[in-house]
Design a protein around this nucleic acid. Structure first.
Lengths: 192, 192
DNA sequence: GCCAACCTACCTAGTGGTAGGTAAAATAGG
DNA sequence: CCTATTTTACCTACCACTAGGTAGGTTGGC
């Protein structure tokens, strides 16, 4: 892994645990084993780092969703796969890390515009993907939405719940609590 | 309003917009119109401030929920009242402020233990209250949950969604988006 | 020799927090 | 009632430390 990648990786992990305002170049320098100034060589400003981080995170996230839904036999299974990507974030960090963009969404008030744009795009693309999964599930009969509820609105609701659920679960209850949440959703959405 | 209250009020508003790590004693001092040191007189450490803030916020929130549900004719109306308390947070701040404890939940990684305990209690009490509302609604026939879904789990899911929904809505879409989310929930939970 | 990738050494602007002082209000005691 | 003492609620001036950021030098591989 290149130094540049190591910096991005360290920053991502730190932000997922402590937030952008709780993470500093000094923290990264200690984790990566280089000086603070060397980070500025790769990312002149913190904002440069954040913007690139969000972009990369979005790609990795969507790719991971694609992987987790590729072999699913129906829409309900795809939905479970989508949930699994979120659960993995929490699980792969001893229940300490939440979604990078969920974290940054809570800090929009102290973020630069291009980072915020990146976070918005993450939300848009993710919800769009999720809405596509609902399309599939309703089409193949494995999922059923309340009548009058658009797939877009349902996806919005589910996605908010996942982001919020990560926060709740990290606060108390950890991975089991988060899995209970996703199970509840599947119970509500699966066709009988 | 006493200086002490003004400090708490200013801190609350700042945190709801920028987070605890994005708020400083200096910010408060400017808003309230006193010196930084005077804030330390009232709240020796930042942690003292945060802990008291969370406690007060929890009380006010629960009281507000009580007000918004008192005159509701059934469980579904009570649920709508609960949602309204969240919407009011966003609405009363030009769509810039989210729930104080939702904000702090995202910052648990850089918070002191007693503040975290307070945030946990906020979540527990709120979800408990929400579960009580679902009890009422299911009992009086105005709400219907998917079978096999406990009221506790449903409340957990709804609450996560509200906290996440505030973040999403602040990011993009504002109050209208948040209201669409709560409407979707009512559509899913209202008995036909 | 060049240039990328680092380094040391520094800067300015803030951070939470402390030391010590002061004016005014409350509260005694004779 | 009037003075003496304490308490409240602030202040100025500082502390040590950390923040993001910069200038310029060193090193090693092509």
């Amino acid at each position: 892994m290149s130094t540049r990648e190591a910096i991005l990786d360290s920053a991502r992990s730190l932000i997922q645990r402590r937030g952008t305002n709780g993470m500093s170049y000094d923290d990264i320098s200690r984790q990566v084993g280089i000086r603070k100034a060397s980070i500025h060589y790769h990312f002149p400003t913190k904002n440069d780092l954040l913007a690139e981080l969000v972009e990369g995170y979005t790609d990795v996230f969507l790719e991971s969703v694609a992987e987790h839904t590729r072999d699913a036999e129906n829409g309900a299974a795809q939905l479970a796969g989508f949930f699994e990507v979120f659960a993995a974030t929490l699980e792969g960090s001893n229940g300490c890390a939440v979604c990078l963009c969920g974290m940054m969404a809570s800090e929009v008030g102290s973020l630069n515009d291009d980072s915020v744009d990146g976070v918005r795009e993450f939300f848009r693309k993710s919800i769009e993907t999720l809405a596509g999964i609902l399309d599939v599930g309703v089409e193949d009969g494995s999922l059923r939405l309340a009548e009058g509820l658009s797939h877009q609105d349902a996806a919005d609701l589910i996605f908010s719940s996942l982001e919020g659920g990560l926060l709740s679960a990290r606060l108390e209850g950890g991975v089991p609590r988060f899995r209970r949440l996703t199970s509840s959703f599947l119970a509500m959405l699966k066709a009988p």
